[in-house]
Design a binder for these strands. Sequence first.
DNA 1: TCGTAATCGAGACGGTACGTCGTGTCTTGCC
DNA 2: GGCAAGACACGACGTACCGTCTCGATTACGA
Lengths: 209, 209, 209, 209
Amino acid sequence: MTKRTMASPSGKGRSLKRSTGCRRNVETSRAILEAAAAILQEKGYANFTIEEVARRSGASKSTIYRWWANKMGLLFDCYAGASEKMLVIPDFGDVEREIVFMIRSLWKFWRETPSGRAFRLLIAEAQTDASTVEEWRTRFLPERRKLLRFVLQRAAERGELRRDIDFETVMDIMFGYSWYRLLTGQIDDDVKAATAMVREMVRGIIRKE
Amino acid sequence: MTKRTMASPSGKGRSLKRSTGCRRNVETSRAILEAAAAILQEKGYANFTIEEVARRSGASKSTIYRWWANKMGLLFDCYAGASEKMLVIPDFGDVEREIVFMIRSLWKFWRETPSGRAFRLLIAEAQTDASTVEEWRTRFLPERRKLLRFVLQRAAERGELRRDIDFETVMDIMFGYSWYRLLTGQIDDDVKAATAMVREMVRGIIRKE
Amino acid sequence: MTKRTMASPSGKGRSLKRSTGCRRNVETSRAILEAAAAILQEKGYANFTIEEVARRSGASKSTIYRWWANKMGLLFDCYAGASEKMLVIPDFGDVEREIVFMIRSLWKFWRETPSGRAFRLLIAEAQTDASTVEEWRTRFLPERRKLLRFVLQRAAERGELRRDIDFETVMDIMFGYSWYRLLTGQIDDDVKAATAMVREMVRGIIRKE
Amino acid sequence: MTKRTMASPSGKGRSLKRSTGCRRNVETSRAILEAAAAILQEKGYANFTIEEVARRSGASKSTIYRWWANKMGLLFDCYAGASEKMLVIPDFGDVEREIVFMIRSLWKFWRETPSGRAFRLLIAEAQTDASTVEEWRTRFLPERRKLLRFVLQRAAERGELRRDIDFETVMDIMFGYSWYRLLTGQIDDDVKAATAMVREMVRGIIRKE
DNA sequence: TCGTAATCGAGACGGTACGTCGTGTCTTGCC
DNA sequence: GGCAAGACACGACGTACCGTCTCGATTACGA
């Protein structure tokens, strides 16, 4: 009356994916990332579990843990891989339009791609452990900030910006705005929101007489 | 075979904290919130579990779940209770100084109180499903925005601000900045950072000749 | 963000059943027994819980526990009350037919009445505690055995039975048979089963030449 | 951000009993059954919980639930394992003595071994829902009846029994008798009780002139 | 007639077990 | 060595019932 009879480990269900010897199987690796992306797409932020990734990718948990340290590592690669292709640098000759464009692109990416959806989870995961936040901040964020910095500096060279602005602070502000909207569930394709933010940033809030 | 004729094999365990009838036991409620805060203080955002709260508070899990729907609800009350006492409205007659002060107060709260420390977990926790984000956005955030809105509107009445600014957008920007710094582990008591942000906001980034 | 606002104990939902002062409210008592019976009827042996009885009867748990020591006590009264009315003594002038009739009546009672259904649970409950078994055996069973003993003795007086039979043992055998069928889920209205048992008992199994 | 670049915040707890790969760990399995038996021995039928078994065996609850569907399944294996060793088939050339011997062995087993003690709980547990009763009746009982059927048939071949007896019914009667005695707390080593039952069965109760 | 004493509902409470799920580690045996 | 399969300890989850308790309203009876 036990639940099942003795398990036979190499039973009926043969897997298609086999070992490729002492080299990493790239097919497996790809399958894992694809499965991870699909789960994020379909089931949302919760329900994203390593076990589910293993089930869907046909990989074993050990293989996943061999190559990624934990859930966050996997999420990270989901996001990193895709964002590079999606985010491009506009060149309109007008910094305001360029930034609005970039914000809308970013939000669209967050909204519409599985990898983008991973991002909020990535932020959440990172909060559980101080060292993870640190590593993430120093290794991941700089990559993302490059694009915006480039656009801002180009605008500065074109003479569009005040001489004395602090680029890093401005970028903190702009990323912060997008993150805040993301984390509070407000990243519809809202042209007004993006434009409004840029306008306030651009003009300053102080009254000049 | 009513009571007096039937053996009663029960009644071994005696509890310390007794029932207060059909009214909620405020002492228990307080013990729970205190335990929750203490755990956050000592063990950090991760390792915060309902079971641990139950163990330390001496309350039972059922009691916690009777009054809070889930972990997030409890975290929320931890935060809300404390933040009301901590965050005050400055009145310096100068909106720049007022905002810098508020930002520094907020960061200090986030850094130095157990409840404040809970906040990043609260954000993370809220990301797990869409309905939580929604509830959080509509019930929790408005409360937090009131203070800043008050300060901005007062400044507007004093004539310090441009006539046409969009208060909500400005608040999104300012909260966004603080959240971003928090979530990327950069909320030291950095006067420069707070001041820099305000300066950029205040002046605008566009060059005016 | 707590689960609900402060409970108001004497809120909207007024109960119909009121206190009857310092006398026991028989209506409440009846409602409890009826609810208990109904639950057994509908939901079966599992799902019979004091809380459910309280819910359905409109009584409070304290009232139930005031009058019955525990779940078993309540089950017991469910059974005892009903069985008296249901089980009658046949008088056919033929002990075989009388016993078959009694068995079928008993099985029918067990099958078709809520109280009867309680019986198997009663047996099960009684097993959890040694003193309960004891009390049950000495206080409850004798009552049930009276009927059968009466029938057997009447048959003996009619000269139908062997002189030296041990009534108590025979009764043990007969009750045992019914219990076994009950506890193994075989108390359909199976005339053959009842008859077969009686035949074996009556004839003996040893070959007589 | 593969494994080697990502901090791994885990790995604090070391366990004593290690995995044996994808094969079932027989040591664990044995430890679970032993713990279960010991608990029955010491704490009786009530107080037998899966959690306690987990605690004492050093196994995790998940492992228990991996191999046994529920409490009943585990109890069952406790009982089945032990009963095979304990219950033997006598061969005295005399069916009366053989049956008395078997009954006394069975009662002794029920009385004196932890697994035997589990049996009444097993019966009780099985009553909680209809499907359990069914499974139990079809999967468990037949195994137990084999021994007795063998003895009866051998006696029949020796010519000791009436030609037309219904073996299944006789077994129902005999098992019923033992169960009834068990469930009503009367399985002392009472030679008289066992003998009396057999005598009544053997001779029949009807008077033959 | 009024106080005392008991009943009753509602439901909070500590406790404990349930059964499920996910984590990250490990082992076996095939490739 | 890579890899699938999957067993394992750990521990949190959220639910359910248990039996005890307190509260405040209600009601009968005796002083």
